[in-house]
Write a protein that binds this DNA or RNA. Structure first.
Lengths: 209, 209
DNA sequence: CTAGTGGGTGAACGTCTGTACACTCAAACC
DNA sequence: GGTTTGAGTGTACAGACGTTCACCCACTAG
């Protein structure tokens, strides 16, 4: 009871973020109204402005939250230090599945708004995905077998992998908790990653162009 | 002047579809109002109902149109019969780039509404993409080197490729006509396809699991 | 030539939207 | 312990929304 004032504000703020996340499930941020959110939270519409300037600003906040959890995911994968390839594949896919299931609403949000959100939200998401690709590229550069790769080839490969992972996250969200469906998506992702890595390991043996 | 009645109706119908395609650029179908469309076309809101039951029904029509052009694209690629691999890669990517640039609005529409459209529209798009994956899988089965593959592996591979192509289409749409950006996306896509195919050709040499 | 079909009109409805403004009243501060 | 602060309230407005209804009147069919 020491800091009741800021605590209550934070609680309402969280309630607004959660309500927004829930309400725009099945449509999009651009179709979400300030009044719907306020009604769901149980406050009057004008009180919304005490926390956010607009729905779009709320969206940018949700992007940050979502990618905070994604970053923690990637950090987990990286922390698996010594990679046999089949081990790094299993760990990566497993961690992805776990996080997407745990924070399903956030990942569903990103997958949707990446293509359909307000322009500023789209730009923020694109930027975060580019960051993730860049981080993956620097990690790939440390793996044995990639010493001779050009930075451009590393970028292209990590774009391919990140793209496949985004697609996987999308399908996990669509599977919506059905464990067998999630299981099959995970298996598909594992196989895809193996195919890609096999191709990558052989890459320099056939010169580009 | 023989069939003026149905011609005029068809012309208005096209104008509605085009206006909808243009207006939901930058947001989404779920944020598009019947009145906006009518205003843009130059008809009164109620006249909209002479052509479509709802915005959602209009969306389903747009899905059909978009995938009609995608199918023609895939047919073009297939018609390149005898494949050296580097040739099939170049043809595929070139055809994709050409079609996406030609029908940019339709592809932007699909990329957006696939994740954010009304549920029925989303389902229709997902279904069409699954069809495309299936057709690609049967084509892959005809290539030399895949004789021993399981149907499941074929499905996984074609899902990977179609996913990468959807991602490529997305980036071309984002490049929005800047020729150098489009060029780079195309080059990235070519490299990615080569990496995937190299991996695929070596696939059976390392058993799964 | 006459009857009827059907794309488009225009006014009206109830509902929802974002935002402005003046307000309360408990917690925080000095 | 009196003053300030700020999250939440309540009312109000103008505009946009989907949908209804009765109404045109150019074209078509017979």
């Amino acid at each position: 009871m020491t800091e009741t004032r800021v605590e209550r504000k934070e609680r309402t703020r969280r309630a607004i973020l959660d309500a927004a996340l829930q309400l725009c499930d099945g449509s999009s941020l651009v179709a979400l109204s300030l009044r719907q959110v306020a009604r769901e939270v149980g406050i009057v519409p004008t009180a919304f402005y005490r926390h956010f300037d607009s729905i779009e600003a709320l969206g940018l906040e949700l992007v940050d939250e979502s990618f905070a959890s994604l970053r923690s995911m990637l950090r987990d994968v990286r922390s698996g230090s010594q990679p046999s390839f089949s081990e790094v594949v299993d760990r990566s896919v497993g961690t992805l599945v776990e996080h997407v299931e745990r924070r399903g609403r956030h990942f569903a949000f990103i997958v949707r708004e990446r293509a359909a959100g307000p322009p500023a939200v789209r730009a923020a998401i694109r930027h975060q995905i580019e960051l993730a690709q860049h981080e993956l590229a620097t990690d790939l550069a440390r793996l044995p077998g990639t010493e001779a790769w050009s930075p451009e080839d590393l970028r292209v490969l990590s774009a391919l992998i990140v793209g496949a992972m985004v697609g996987t996250a999308e399908q996990i969200v669509q599977a919506d908790g059905r464990p067998d469906a999630v299981q099959q998506v995970a298996e598909t992702a594992r196989t895809q990653l193996r195919m890609v890595l096999i191709g990558a390991l052989q890459w320099r043996s056939t010169p580009p162009a």
